[in-house]
Design a protein around this nucleic acid. Structure first.
Length: 681
RNA sequence: GGCGUGGUAGCUCAGUUGGUUAGAGCGUCGGAUUCAUAACCCGGAGGUCACGAGUUCAACUCUCGUCCACGCUACCA
């Protein structure tokens, strides 16, 4: 869309079950913030909207696990996320949350309107139901044995052990994670959005109309979905955490989190409009408004297919003009993982690198996963800080300010009869606003930032060619000309860098004593930003070097975190033994003849075991895991040469091998054809 | 398995509708310089453009196949 009257920019609502990490920042929030800041510097009418996404099953699960209410969970992370964005310089016009009343009514009304317009299909389906907790179970609330690999703690939607995706109905021995009881099948009614009815429209709107202006990864993914054929999708769930379905006979049903979340953009806008005396409808219903969603690639289907269908079905809303989704960021060669704690967390970075907010912004933009997955490494972070921010940008500014103070008492010198190199430098400078702006407007943020850096490079080169420290001895006017130009370049860097490095550029404005009102358009219109005679402030280093020790510390921390996590999962292997030690063991197959409880003991059973060559009495601590009647006839592995020992007054001759995990003990399986007395080695 | 995106110098990435010796930054090696946070500036080396076929006068660019990474999706004997 060319020359829109206003812009509505949204950034994916962070899901409030954890803090923000660098992946979120580089994929979504930094590009969105750059885009919004840029447009504001161009004096456009822009709102930048976000908020916390606080409903859905994972939050409910986490709350249950911690024994607190979902509200406590979302309050915790909402505050944390909001304040770290704030400190980091992601500047939303409004940051809301989906548990706010405005959102509740907005989402509820939206659903109702679609219902009234007959846009849904009502369908009854069979779902697993927990009779004890009296509620339907979302897939992730069900646990059981994976039919593929036999892993006993597979979730209803996916087995974490072998990775296959499942439906909760396929699980063997399903168990409710709420009450532990065995779920039963029960029918339940839900509302479906018939996505398939919009295929023709999507073909027109995306496949045809956005072939050239959407990013290949986004367009390709949409095409893939549409070509595969869309299915009606349930937009309600049986759950007690979310927005109530606003209909009769819908108790215990809420809007599916993916239905209510994008509506959060709208309700957040409403709150902003109310607080600022604006009309929210202009930002969502006026054809001259450009709507842009910044998201990660995991959200493409919702923002390009489902939400637009919702908006289309509702009828009065505009559609997104673009959805510049990014790919994923890796960390030191591995995928980011919250559960493995393989991440750089924003709130920790802010604590550990005070005053270096912009460094992270810069590096994440320079290395943003715009066209493919990318890798963040601490070494690269250090290199970009030291070689680009410190050496190119900071150094240039410092050179110019120091020279200006040294030769001209901190005032912008007057210029006369500029030579060719100086005129060229001015021309180059004047091209930069448009060059950078064009890249930002086409969502090429890394390139835009790089062009900005190249201006500082050009500045350094210009100084090297003009050598004002030499000319001052022979030709003062030449030195004046040179520093006049160099100062204009410095000012341009301050203005043009604002979308990328807002905190640093504020500092630079202060150093140059630039008027805060000087923005993007001023640079295009006139060549002079710092007039002759203008006094500048003292030089301050904009950036400082980051040493190897600091980087090493971060790398160590990362590996330390993962190690801790793995140590919980796996007990360390015991000290190595030699083969002779192993050979001393005599393990035999035995068969349990009878079992009885040891008097006065909860755990111990007294077993009679047929060893083939003799019958033995063995005391074993399996009473809590096996019933007495399960045991006779079972084959077991016995350490046959273990020194006999009296336990609770009974002489135990040997030990039965069992596997142990968090769930308890289980007998080691013995093949059916093994006979009592067989030797195991 | 199907679909999508990507696979270009040691590293991170550009490469416009197929057209002369494939580009940038970092790193590396050499030079120059001192205003500057040993920073800046100049120059050199470094690539069978994942692999294999094909179309073409000409292919990094188009077609087909293979391999790898990531994502989406489906699980049938």
């Amino acid at each position: 869309m060319n020359n829109p009257k206003r812009y509505t920019i949204t950034a994916a609502l962070p899901y409030t079950n954890g803090p923000i990490h660098i992946g979120h920042l580089s994929g979504v929030y930094i590009p969105a913030d750059i885009y919004a800041r840029y447009l504001k510097l161009k004096d456009k009418d822009v709102i930048f909207i976000c908020g916390s996404d606080e409903h859905g099953v994972p939050i409910k699960l986490k709350a249950d696990k911690e024994g607190v209410t979902p509200k406590e969970i979302v309050d915790r992370y909402h505050e944390m996320i909001k304040s770290s964005f704030d400190r980091f310089g992601i500047h939303f016009d409004h940051y809301s949350r989906t548990t706010n009343p405005t959102h509740n009514s907005t989402a509820s009304d939206f659903f109702k309107k679609l219902h009234d317009k007959d846009k849904f299909i009502e369908k009854e389906t069979e779902q697993l139901y927990d009779p004890e907790a009296k509620q339907f179970l979302a897939d992730r609330f069900v646990e059981g044995t994976c039919p593929k690999c036999g892993y006993e703690e597979a979730y209803g939607d996916q087995c974490e052990n072998c990775g296959t995706s499942l439906s909760s109905q396929e699980l063997i021995n399903p168990k409710s994670k709420i009450s532990g009881s065995k779920p039963v099948k029960k029918t339940t009614k839900h509302w479906f959005l018939p996505l398939d009815q919009y295929e023709d429209w999507l073909n027109e709107w995306i496949i045809k109309d956005h072939k050239n202006d959407w990013k290949p990864n986004v367009y390709g993914q949409c095409k893939s979905w549409i070509d595969e054929g869309l299915q009606p999708r349930a937009v309600t769930r049986d759950l007690d955490w979310g927005i109530q379905v606003p209909l009769e006979n819908a108790e215990g049903k809420v809007l599916y989190v993916w239905f209510d979340a994008p509506i959060g953009y709208i309700s957040s806008t409403k709150e902003w409009a109310e607080a600022n005396n604006k009309n929210w409808k202009e930002y969502w219903k006026d054809e001259d408004t450009k709507l842009v969603h910044f998201i990660g690639k995991d959200n493409i289907v919702f923002h390009c297919i489902i939400f637009p269908i919702m908006l289309k079905a509702e009828g009065s809303f505009i559609l997104p003009d673009n959805v510049p989704a990014n790919e994923f960021l890796n960390l030191e060669g591995r995928k980011l993982s919250t559960s493995k704690n393989w991440a750089v967390w924003l709130h920790e970075y802010l604590e550990e690198f005070p005053g270096k907010e912009d460094v992270l912004r810069y590096v994440l933009t320079a290395n943003a996963p715009e066209t493919k997955d990318n890798d963040f490494t601490w070494k690269d972070f250090q290199a970009r800080n030291n070689n680009e921010l410190v050496a190119i940008v900071g150094n240039f500014i410092n050179r110019v300010t120091v020279l200006t103070h040294k030769y001209f008492q901190g005032h912008v010198p007057e210029y006369k009869d500029l030579d060719e190199a100086s005129i060229k430098a001015l021309q180059l400078l004047n091209q930069h606003p448009d060059k950078i702006g064009d890249k930002i407007e086409t969502y090429k943020f890394r390139e835009a930032q790089n062009i900005w850096l190249s201006l500082a490079r050009a500045g350094n080169k210009y100084l090297a060619e003009k050598e004002p420290w030499k000319s001052i001895k022979t030709n003062e006017q030449e030195t004046k000309n040179t520093l006049y130009i160099a100062l204009q370049i410095s000012a341009a860097l301050a203005v043009l860098g604002r979308p990328f490095l807002p905190i640093t550029c504020k500092k630079l404005y202060d150093i140059l004593k630039l008027d805060d009102g000087i923005t993007w358009n001023d640079i295009t219109d006139k060549a002079e930003y710092l007039p002759v005679g203008h006094g500048i402030g003292q030089s301050v280093h904009l950036f400082t070097k980051i040493d190897d020790k600091t980087i090493q510390k971060q790398q160590d921390k990362l590996f330390q975190n993962t190690d801790d996590k793995e140590r919980i999962d796996h007990k360390p292997v015991k000290k190595a033994i030699d083969f002779n030690d192993f050979q001393k063991l005599d393990i035999r197959v035995g068969s349990i003849l009878s079992a009885k409880q040891v008097k006065g003991s909860e755990k111990l059973l007294e077993l009679k075991v047929d060893m083939g060559f003799e019958k033995r009495t063995i005391v074993s601590g399996m009473a809590k895991h096996y019933r007495l009647d399960q045991l006779p006839g079972k084959s077991v592995l016995v350490v046959a040469n273990l020194e006999p020992k009296k336990i609770m007054g009974i002489k135990s001759n040997g030990m039965i091998l069992m596997a142990e995990n968090a769930e308890g003990l289980s007998l080691v399986n013995v093949p059916e054809n093994a006979k009592p007395g067989d030797i195991v080695n």
